[in-house]
Design a binder for these strands. Structure first.
Length: 391
DNA sequence: GCTTCCCGCCAACTA
DNA sequence: TAGTTGGCGGGAAGC
C-alpha cells in the first residue's frame, strides 16, 4: 500500500470531497437513471454494466462495488423463511449476471425497509447479534448460505462453505441491513457510528475490529445520506457525531400512516408524502419538477425519464386491473366529492410545506414522480369505490 | 488531535 | 486460470 501517498499531497488538484462515496453514489443514481431509461424499451436490455459505470463516472471499479453492495442489500430479507423469500428481494439494485446489475428503483425502499423493520424486534435482534460467533446467523430462519454453513459444520472437509460463512458475516451488505435494523427495530432516534459498531459487534471489544467496523459504517452512512435516508447530527449525550434516521416514518412500522401525520413529524416519510392535483398529472414542463441544470445530457435524460414515467404510470395503473404500488393510498371511506377536493387541497398545502428538500436532484425528481403517482392512485381508488361501494 | 473515509492490496470466489 | 468481487486497514484530508 505504499503507492497511496501519490494520490494526495503531491497532487495540488486533489480534493477528497470530490472523491467521496456519497457524491459518487449520487452520480451513480444519475447515471443509472439515464442509462436505464434510455434503454428501457429495448428488448432484453435492462441492466447496467459495472465497467461502463466506472468508465463513465471516472472511478475505479472497486468503488462501484461498495455502492452496489449497499444498494443491493437494502431490501434483502435474510430473516424470511425460504418459502416466503421467493419474490421478496426488494432491492434497489439487483445482480443479474457477472458485471451486470438491474435497476429496481427507489419505490422498493419503503416497502422493503418497512418489512425489514417488522420482521424482528430489537431485543430479539440484539440477542441474535450477540450469538453471531456461535451460530453465524441473524435470525430464526435460514438463508441459502446459512444452510450451506450448517452443511459445512457437519462435513469437516467443507472448508469453502465455512470461508463463505466467515466472509458473509463480515460483508458490507449484511452490515448495511443490520445498520438499517438498528434504526427500524428499535426506538433509537440518534445513533453514533461507534455505538452502532459496538452493538453490531456484540460483546467483542477488539479495537481493530471496532475501527474496521466504524470505517465501513462511514461508507454506508455516506451512501444513505446521499439517498436521504439518514442525516448527520450530534449525539445529545456525548455531543459526538451521530446519525438520525429520516428515510422512513416511524408510524409506518406500526401499520398506521396517515397523510396528516406528516404534520406532526418533521421526519420525512419516504414515498408517503402526498401532493399534487389531477391537473398536475398533465406533466407540463413547469409542473414536473424537473429543474434543468447546466448539464445538457441530464436535461435530455430527464425528458426521457419524464416521458417514460408518464407512459409507464398510465400503462400500469390506468387499466382495469387495478394494482396499487408501494405508495398506495389509504382506504377511502368517504366518497363525498367536496370533501375529497378539500383533502386534496390540504394535501397540496402539506406537500408544499413538507416536501423534502433533497440535495440530490434525481432523488428529488423521483419524489415528485411518486407524489404524482400517489395522487393519481388516490383518484382512481376514489372512482373505483364509487363504482363498487364496500358492502 | 480527532474524525472521516479514500484508496488499493490481495485473498476469495467464479466462470 | 484469468477475471471478478469485496474485506480490510493504512494513512491523509478535513475540521
Amino acid at each position: 500500500m505504499a503507492s497511496r501517498d501519490s494520490r494526495t499531497t503531491k497532487d495540488p488538484l486533489y480534493s477528497r470531497k470530490e472523491k467521496s462515496l456519497g457524491l459518487l453514489c449520487s452520480n451513480v443514481f444519475e447515471l443509472i437513471l439515464c442509462s436505464f431509461l434510455r434503454l428501457y424499451n429495448r428488448d432484453g436490455v435492462e441492466s447496467i454494466g459495472l465497467d461502463a459505470a466506472a468508465l463513465q463516472l471516472g472511478v475505479e471499479r472497486r468503488r462501484i462495488y461498495d455502492i452496489v453492495n449497499i444498494l443491493e442489500s437494502i431490501g434483502e430479507f435474510h430473516c424470511l423463511r425460504k418459502s416466503e423469500r421467493a419474490g421478496k428481494r426488494l432491492q434497489v439494485l439487483q445482480r443479474k449476471a457477472k458485471n451486470q446489475y438491474t435497476w429496481k428503483g427507489f419505490d422498493m425502499i419503503p416497502a422493503a425497509l418497512k418489512e425489514q423493520g417488522l420482521q424482528e424486534k430489537f431485543d430479539t435482534y440484539v440477542a441474535n447479534v450477540s450469538n453471531w460467533k456461535e451460530c453465524g446467523v441473524l435470525s430464526n430462519s435460514k438463508t441459502d448460505w446459512q444452510e450451506k454453513c450448517s452443511e459445512a459444520e457437519k462435513v469437516p472437509s467443507c472448508i469453502s462453505a465455512r470461508r463463505e460463512k466467515h466472509r458473509r458475516e463480515k460483508s458490507l451488505g449484511l452490515l448495511t441491513q443490520n445498520f438499517v435494523k438498528l434504526f427500524l427495530c428499535s426506538d433509537v432516534e440518534v445513533i453514533s457510528l461507534d455505538r452502532a459498531a459496538l452493538t453490531l459487534l456484540g460483546h467483542s471489544h477488539d479495537t481493530t475490529a471496532m475501527r474496521t467496523k466504524v470505517r465501513r459504517l462511514y461508507d454506508i452512512a455516506n451512501v444513505f445520506s446521499s439517498m436521504g435516508l439518514i442525516e448527520k447530527t450530534r449525539d445529545p449525550e456525548s455531543g459526538k457525531p451521530a446519525f438520525r434516521w429520516i428515510g422512513l416514518e416511524k408510524s409506518c412500522r406500526h401499520g398506521s400512516s396517515s397523510a396528516l401525520d406528516v404534520k406532526t413529524s418533521k421526519r420525512r416519510e419516504f414515498g408517503n408524502d402526498i401532493t399534487n392535483t389531477v391537473a398536475k398529472r398533465c406533466h407540463t414542463s413547469s409542473s414536473t419538477g424537473w429543474k434543468l441544470n447546466d448539464k445538457s445530457t441530464m436535461g435530455k435524460c430527464k425528458n426521457i425519464v419524464n416521458d417514460q414515467l408518464s407512459v409507464d404510470q398510465h400503462q400500469k395503473y390506468g387499466s382495469n386491473d387495478f394494482v396499487f404500488g408501494p405508495f398506495a393510498p389509504p382506504n377511502v371511506t368517504n366518497t363525498h366529492e367536496k370533501k375529497n377536493e378539500m383533502q386534496i387541497q390540504d394535501w397540496e398545502n402539506l406537500s408544499s410545506t413538507y416536501r423534502p428538500q433533497y440535495s440530490n436532484q434525481v432523488i428529488g425528481d423521483l419524489f415528485h414522480h411518486y407524489a404524482e403517482a400517489w395522487k393519481s392512485w388516490y383518484v382512481e381508488a376514489e372512482d373505483k369505490q364509487q363504482i363498487e361501494p364496500e358492502s
